[in-house]
């Protein structure tokens, strides 16, 4: 469960303030937001006043890796794969495997 640390939380009366940052999923939320910001900056560094451009391969590779990390975080923490049995994790991994097959097979490697 996402909140297996929270169920045993004795602090029953917390409000809407920053208290809930104590839970793990709020850290995940923060990480997702920061990664989103980084994602926006990578193709357009001038947003934060940087005057150079990243090279195209770097942009593509880093954006795809960041997206995969974010996807993994959502699946792992928010969809509770962290607390699931290996069988459910296997089911969840299956579409990634098959879509990898599909994308690699379909990609126009030498001009289609």
């Amino acid at each position: 469960m996402a909140s297996h640390d929270a169920t045993s939380d004795p602090n029953e009366g917390w409000g809407w303030g920053f208290d809930f940052l104590y839970s793990q999923y709020m850290w995940v939320w923060l990480a997702l937001l920061i990664l989103t910001l980084v994602e926006v900056v990578i193709p357009e560094p001038e947003i934060i006043g940087l005057s150079f451009q990243f090279s195209r391969p770097f942009v593509v590779i880093s954006l795809i890796s960041l997206a995969l990390v974010k996807t993994w975080m959502v699946a792992w923490y928010y969809m509770h794969l962290i607390a699931e049995r290996p069988s459910i994790i296997l089911i969840a991994c299956a579409p990634f495997l098959f879509s990898l097959f599909l994308t690699i097979g379909i990609f126009p490697w030498n001009g289609g």
Binding site: F98, F101, G105, W109, N110, G112
Partner: peptide, 18 residues
């Protein structure tokens, strides 16, 4: 079975390596 689909497309002119 997921890795063989393009054998239906041998005559479409996809790359020889594929």
């Amino acid at each position: 079975g997921f890795l063989v689909w393009a054998h239906h497309m041998f005559a479409t002119g996809i790359a020889l390596e594929i």
